[in-house]
Design a binder for these strands. Structure first.
Lengths: 222, 222
DNA sequence: GAGTTTTGTATTGTGTACAGTTATGACGAG
DNA sequence: CTCGTCATAACTGTACACAATACAAAACTC
């Protein structure tokens, strides 16, 4: 069995990432239990895991809330992610093999297909993008690194704002991936690190622009 | 109340870090519950937390084991820690204030006292050293960074092997802290980053030397 | 005798009841 | 009308009981 605990985890996580549970909202174990169709025990398990990911916060009296990410929190996470993920790309460059390179190329081609339609398929883009980075992380071959990045990649708001990415931002992301592939093909660690660092930092500014645009007047993001 | 869960956490954690629970050993929830004098529920909580720190590993069928850290695992952790903690030192340099600087100086003086006795007080050294780094982390002022480093600092074996550090390694650590203080006093971010990176990397090699010495013939560490 | 199936035991997952704690609202005094 | 206090309600922590699963050992078959 052991499904109940996982179901609760996935369910609550999805509700937080989608915004169904608003930032700062109170989380009652009992209410979540009913919402997930399980008892409080697996919900408690799930909340502990989400707390470790900083998706859930607890106040001094042990009550749980949806973490509210300020812009500076998101900036922090992106800065750390840029550092850690460029390190991962560097390790991957040294450990790259031709078979994995082919997989990465196929993955980025899928990204190209998704963003080159008349109406870009953002959901497919996000999925393939996630896979692309996951493959690199796997090649980097460090459990510790994987665990660390796991807490940095999924951020509330990011997925929701991805819908507002412009076509040029999506294509820029694709072409940065191509650069990464070139660096990997040459086993060039410093190159891979540089490209990845820039890739993540660009993503942050795209997010920040979109976020500013959303929170104030709905102006076009650069 | 809420003590039982914390007691279980601290108790199990201490048993792992001290080596009382050997690396790779099976962890039975019930046995731990009895050993901690609580029921299985808080033990489960504690195991989830320790799992997030990678101090406890679970196999595919959800059974828990003490994580067995290979030398390469420890090397991984140190490399990441060097990267992340030097970033923290850099942020701290930019945010440093005079009051905190005084506290850090006092802390390092306490370290000097601990290591300058006829028989160095390693336990006091470790405590003050932890406090020194904790203060820097607090000044860096990023919850995310704090959470990240939390999973990197405590490592099985490290505390145990600290007993074997030579007098010169301890004094070197003290003097590197002094360098950090100088960098902080001048709000010199790159300097602080460099010193911290070197500080952590030296610590790793001290550990590696001691570890090699212990696992093969008991030769003197450099 | 070797391999496979079956059975028994140990361990974890889940639900639920109860106790202790915190928050909230009502009521009364100033 | 406001502030403080007290009572009640809601929620979390803990324990325990039961169900489900996995591992191991023994027995049976080929």
């Amino acid at each position: 069995m052991q499904k109940a605990s996982d179901r609760a985890y996935e369910s609550i996580r999805a509700m937080i990432l989608s915004g169904e549970l608003a930032a700062g909202e109170r989380l009652s174990e009992e209410a979540l239990a009913e919402s997930c169709g399980v008892s409080r025990t697996p919900v408690r398990d799930a909340l502990r895991r989400l707390e470790a990911e900083l998706l859930v916060r607890r106040n001094e009296s042990q009550r749980s809330f949806v973490a509210d990410w300020s812009l500076s929190d998101v900036a922090d996470a992106f800065e750390l992610r840029a550092m850690v993920e460029s390190y991962a790309a560097g390790r991957a460059a040294e450990r790259m093999d031709d078979k994995t390179l082919v997989k990465l190329k196929a993955c980025n081609s899928a990204i190209y297909d998704a963003i080159s339609r008349k109406v870009p398929d953002i959901s497919a883009f996000l999925d393939h993008n996630r896979e692309f980075h996951a493959i690199i992380l796997a090649v980097a071959d460090s459990r510790r690194l994987t665990a660390l990045l796991g807490t940095l990649i999924e951020q509330p708001l990011v997925r929701r704002t991805a819908q507002h990415y412009g076509a040029e931002a999506l294509h820029r992301s694709y072409s940065e991936h191509e650069d990464l592939l070139a660096a990997f093909a040459r086993r060039d660690r410093p190159w891979a690190e540089s490209v990845m660092a820039g890739h993540i930092r660009r993503a942050f500014h795209a997010y920040a622009d979109a976020h500013r645009g959303m929170s104030s007047v709905d102006r076009k993001a650069a």
